[in-house]
Computed example of a mutant assay.
Amino acid sequence: MNSIEQLSQQLGELLLEHKQILVTAESCTGGGVANAITEIAGSSAWFDRAFVTYSNEAKQEMIGVKSETLSEFGAVSEPVVIQMVQGALKNSNATIGVSISGIAGPSGGSKEKPVGTVCFAWADKSDWLKVETQHFAGDRSAVRTQAVLHALEMIKQYLS
């Protein structure tokens, strides 16, 4: 079992123990977190749904990200991932969520937001909110894999 599978299994056990249901809102990972979770047998007991909101339109239509926030800060920003996780929680039966938006590359980066920049937000129905930006190294696949691992690890840490 690889580290993503092990982490997903451990996270599932913690979500069950804490009676939490997870939702994801993903952009640059394209559903990678949801895929990792649903590889685990029985995940329907602790995983509600995933929103893969790759385009700005999808972010707005599916989970209520405001166009003004996208215009002011860009899709890869902490204000956007906050609205993504809040919208995912609002539009699901979940009690805890994670959102991810980033620049996996090989193009799309800038001086301010280079390739490998990934913003995360985690929140739950009890008003816990954690937001951060990470800078991952490597090619597109490596950036996406590191983002999935980080998203899962931070929920696991919160629940531990």
Rank of each mutant, 00 (worst) to 15 (best):
E5Y: 00
L7S: 01
L7G: 02
S8F: 00
S8D: 04
L11M: 06
L11W: 02
G12E: 01
E13C: 05
E17D: 15
E17C: 14
H18C: 04
K19H: 15
Q20M: 05
L22A: 07
T24E: 07
E26N: 09
E26T: 07
G31K: 04
G32N: 02
G32T: 07
V33S: 03
A34N: 05
N35R: 11
T38C: 14
E39D: 14
I40M: 00
I40L: 03
G42H: 09
G42Y: 06
A45D: 14
A45H: 14
W46A: 00
W46Y: 02
F47S: 01
D48I: 08
D48K: 10
R49A: 10
R49H: 04
A50L: 05
F51V: 07
F51P: 00
V52F: 00
V52D: 04
T53M: 03
N56V: 13
E57R: 15
E57W: 14
K59Y: 13
K59L: 08
K59G: 09
K59C: 05
E61T: 15
E61C: 09
V65C: 10
V65P: 02
K66P: 10
K66D: 14
S67E: 15
S67G: 11
T69H: 07
T69D: 11
L70Q: 03
L70G: 06
L70T: 07
S71N: 15
E72L: 12
G74N: 07
E78Q: 13
I82S: 12
I82Q: 12
Q83S: 06
Q83N: 09
Q83K: 10
M84N: 08
Q86H: 15
Q86M: 13
G87Q: 10
A88T: 00
L89W: 08
L89G: 12
K90G: 15
N91M: 13
S92F: 08
N93G: 11
A94I: 09
T95M: 13
T95F: 06
G97E: 12
